[in-house]
Amino acid sequence: MKPWLTLMCAGVLLVGCGKQEQPPEPVRPVLSVVVQPQLQARLGRFAGVIEARYESTLGFRVGGRIARRWLDVGAQVKAGDTLATLDPTDQQNQLRAAEGDLARVQAQWINAQSDARRQQQLYDRGVGAQAQLDIAQTNLKTAGATLEQARSSVSQARDQLGYTTLRSDHAAVITAWQAEAGQTVTAGQAVVKLARPDVKEAVIDLPIGIAEQLAPDLTFTVASQLNPAVNTTATLRELEPKADATTRTRRARLTLASTPETFHLGTAVSVTLSSQVSPRSELPASALLERDGKTQVWVVEPQQKTVALRDVTLIDRNEDRIVVSSGVQPGERVVIAGVNSLKPGQQVTFDEDAQ
């Protein structure tokens, strides 16, 4: 074989055995978000209601049949306003009987007073006996004591008659009636519930797990459910020590920093719990890539528009989000879709305004 033919064949073989150049990775469009620092941790959002801080339940101080309810639920009352009345027949009879006893005892006391004066005059002239004078003075003292007792009975009977009228002892709003007209009630039985509208607070039911971990620096944000723009902050005033056996929640009462005008009694509110935390960032759960026991995310290099894997430390996660404490910095852009199909150094395109 000629030498030049041999060289040609060898060249053909070398070209045939050489590796072909790999085509560049295609530029992939991705969805991404910019990392935002999180200095407060949200512990949840709960439904609540605006209630009066001070509430009282009133009842009659005597028993009887309710003759009339003068006001309905929602009515505003002032101190001394009549709320309900009992049938006063029994108390009126008791008062008349006490007044009759008082008149009789007063007559006896007048007689005893006249007799004691007469016996004293006779004794002073030397014609009366000491024993008769002593008896007259003793009868006068007894009649005086009986008179005081009768007067007390009349006063008590008048009080009993006055107790047949149930009055408000402070300005309030009627929130509930627990007895109806015609119903017979006993002394002290709950009849009407009043709430003072001047001091209001938010009331929510918290799960046991959250209630037991409330930090002293916890911040509550209370917003109207109908208009979230109307809101205020609040602090924890009271946490019931015992959980509800049915709902497994504990009731919390919050003192409002300010009370918006639209926060009427019974207003439905949304209460958000947040607490100061160490710097961290929250990302969609779709951004997380888990390989070989590592938790990673794709970070976009803004100048070259390429992606690189970054190890991150998870401190919380659920189906929708992850919370990382390290691995990414505020302002960096992280890929949140298609993370399993990217390669290190691959060029990507993204919308600058996508969040």
Rank of each mutant, 00 (worst) to 15 (best):
V12C: 15
V192A: 00
L236S: 00
S258Y: 03
Q20W: 02
R69K: 11
R151K: 12
T142R: 07
I336T: 15
A195N: 06
V191T: 09
T306G: 12
A129P: 14
V154Y: 03
T313A: 13
A285P: 13
A47C: 01
S325E: 08
T267S: 10
T349N: 14
S32G: 05
T246W: 11
R317W: 07
I204S: 06
R310D: 13
T246Q: 15
L256A: 13
S325F: 01
S270Q: 14
T306E: 06
L256R: 11
H264Q: 10
T82K: 09
R317S: 15
V269A: 09
P29K: 06
K343D: 15
Q113G: 03
G74A: 02
L194F: 04
G74R: 00
T259V: 12
Q106E: 08
S274R: 08
Q40V: 02
Q130T: 08
D90S: 12
D159K: 09
I66Q: 03
A211L: 09
Q296P: 01
Q178F: 06
R117K: 08
V35T: 04
G126F: 08
P241C: 02
P228R: 07
Q213W: 10
D159P: 08
T349G: 12
V299F: 01
L166M: 06
L95V: 07
V297P: 00
R45S: 14
F60C: 00
V30Q: 03
L236K: 01
R117I: 05
L314I: 04
L14A: 09
Q130Y: 03
S275V: 11
L194Y: 04
A131Y: 11
P228S: 11
R68F: 10
S325K: 08
L289R: 12
Q94S: 14
D87A: 04
T186G: 14
F350A: 05
G48C: 10
R104H: 02
V77R: 04
R125G: 12
T175V: 13
G345C: 10
R118I: 05
V105K: 01
A98W: 09
V62C: 08
V269D: 03
G162K: 06
A171D: 14
D353R: 07
Q137C: 04
T186L: 09
S258N: 06
E201V: 08
V328T: 01
N318E: 13
P88L: 02
Y163Q: 13
Q36W: 03
N231E: 14
L194M: 03
R248C: 11
A176V: 01
D311G: 14
T262E: 13
T6Q: 12
L194W: 04
L31D: 13
V15G: 11
Q183P: 15
K19Q: 13
A116T: 02
I66P: 04
K19N: 12
V73I: 06
Q329D: 15
G126I: 01
N340W: 10
R42L: 05
E201I: 10
W109N: 05
D320M: 13
A181F: 05
A268H: 10
A10V: 12
V127Y: 15
P24M: 06
L14M: 07
R42M: 05
K343M: 11
T57L: 03
T235F: 07
N231Q: 15
L254V: 10
D115A: 15
G188M: 12
A143H: 04
Y123W: 05
V73F: 03
V154H: 04
V15C: 09
A84K: 01
A187Q: 09
A116R: 04
T232V: 06
T306S: 14
E319V: 15
T57W: 02
T259E: 14
P197D: 07
